[in-house]
Computed example of a mutant assay.
Amino acid sequence: MKFTNRVPDSWKGLQDLVAEYLIVAGYRAITPCEIDTVRGKVEVDVCVEAPYDLVKRIICECKYWNTPVPKEKVHAFRTVVHDCGAELGIIISKEGYQSGAIEAAKFSNVRLETWDTFLELVKDKWIDNKLWSVKTMTAKIMNYRDTYEYEAERLTDEEYPRYKDTCTNITDFVEQGLLVRKSDLLNGSDFIQRFPLYQQSESIEHYLDELSSKLKETLDILERLSVKPNKPNRFLSTVRSFMEETE
């Protein structure tokens, strides 16, 4: 299954999607962004901060052109990257690069990417972060389904049937949220293929978005109940350990 089926349909769409994928992957991305350089202020398409990585600052330039990017644009972008103190510059081009542009980027801190190769750069971190979000919601839902700790008998007569129906209807999605691994997503394992939600999904992104939506809807219902879990963080370490042990 492909990572995503989404393709930018305009320059702004390319710019916005680049920032969106970087944000979900765990970076701080702003688009557009005005930055300071030694020559004054410059507006860049996407400015990325990565405080916990070796590369702390990344500048992205988005080229939704119908022709390959020439070397002059690479030279100009290299200057901006250097003048603002960024450790890395990335150009994302719709139609690739002229041979001179590829040569101009050699031995520099500028990477030349297409939309597809950019997605490959961020895919692993995107999936890691999205999966962790899914598993965090799953852990919270499991608190409400815990028959030993959750005091469902204290719910009102109106709440209890809604609680039971909600817990029953979410069983399949809780199983996926707890047990699905990155390797299942990347390899299309037999385990994940037995779930209807996965079978109906067009991409890994689509599947995780749909699973997140189902879990969030359920959590919203449960968190509005008058009775709260006695140990709200009980299952968080369980899902964290499972994620670490299986990847």
Results as ranks from 00 to 15, higher is better:
Lys94Ile: 00
Ala76Lys: 12
Ser93Gly: 09
Lys123Gln: 13
Gln98Val: 10
Val122Glu: 12
Lys106His: 08
Thr117Ser: 15
Ile102Asp: 02
Gly96His: 04
Ala101Trp: 02
Phe77Leu: 05
His75Ala: 10
Pro68Val: 07
Glu103Pro: 03
Ala104Arg: 05
Ala76Leu: 13
Thr117Leu: 05
Leu121Asn: 10
Glu103Asn: 10
Val69Glu: 01
Asp83Ile: 04
Lys71Thr: 06
Glu120Cys: 09
Ile102Gln: 13
Lys106Asp: 04
Ser93Gln: 07
Ile90Glu: 04
Thr117Cys: 02
Cys84Gly: 01
Cys84Arg: 04
His82Gly: 06
Glu87Ile: 06
Asp116Gln: 11
His82Met: 11
Asp116His: 12
Arg78Pro: 00
Ile90Gly: 04
Thr79Val: 11
Ala86Met: 00
Ile91Gln: 05
Gly85Arg: 03
Trp115Asn: 01
Ala76Phe: 08
Glu113Ser: 12
Glu72Leu: 10
Ala104Thr: 07
Ile91Ala: 03
Ser108Ile: 04
Val80Asn: 02
Lys71Tyr: 11
Leu121Tyr: 12
Gly85Val: 06
Ala104Cys: 08
Lys106Gln: 15
Glu95Leu: 04
Thr114Arg: 09
Asp83His: 10
Leu121Met: 12
Val69Ile: 13
Leu119Phe: 07
Gln98Lys: 12
Thr117Asn: 04
Glu72Asp: 15
Leu119Ile: 10
Thr67Phe: 14
Ile92Cys: 08
Asp124Gln: 12
Lys73Cys: 01
Lys73Trp: 10
Glu95Gln: 15
Val81Ile: 07
Thr67Ile: 14
Ser93Ala: 15
Ile90Ser: 01
Asp124Tyr: 11
Lys123His: 12
Cys84Ser: 15
Phe107Asp: 15
Pro68His: 07
Gln98Ser: 11
Glu87Val: 03
Cys84Phe: 00
Val122Tyr: 10
Lys94Ala: 08
His75Trp: 13
Gly96Cys: 06
Asp83Glu: 14
Lys94Arg: 15
Arg78Glu: 09
Ala105Asp: 08
Trp115Cys: 08
Leu112Gln: 06
Leu112His: 01
Phe107Thr: 08
Ile91Cys: 06
Gln98Ile: 02
Ile90Met: 14
Thr79Gln: 13
Val69Leu: 15
Glu87Thr: 02
Asp124Arg: 14
Ala76His: 13
Ile91Glu: 00
Ala86Thr: 04
Pro70Leu: 04
Ile91Met: 15
Glu120Gly: 12
Ala105Trp: 04
Lys106Phe: 00
Asp116Asn: 14
His75Thr: 14
Trp115Tyr: 10
Val81Leu: 03
Ala105Asn: 02
Ser99Pro: 08
Ile90Asp: 06
Thr67Met: 13
Gly96Asn: 02
Val69Phe: 04
His82Ser: 15
Leu88Glu: 10
Ile92Leu: 05
His82Glu: 12
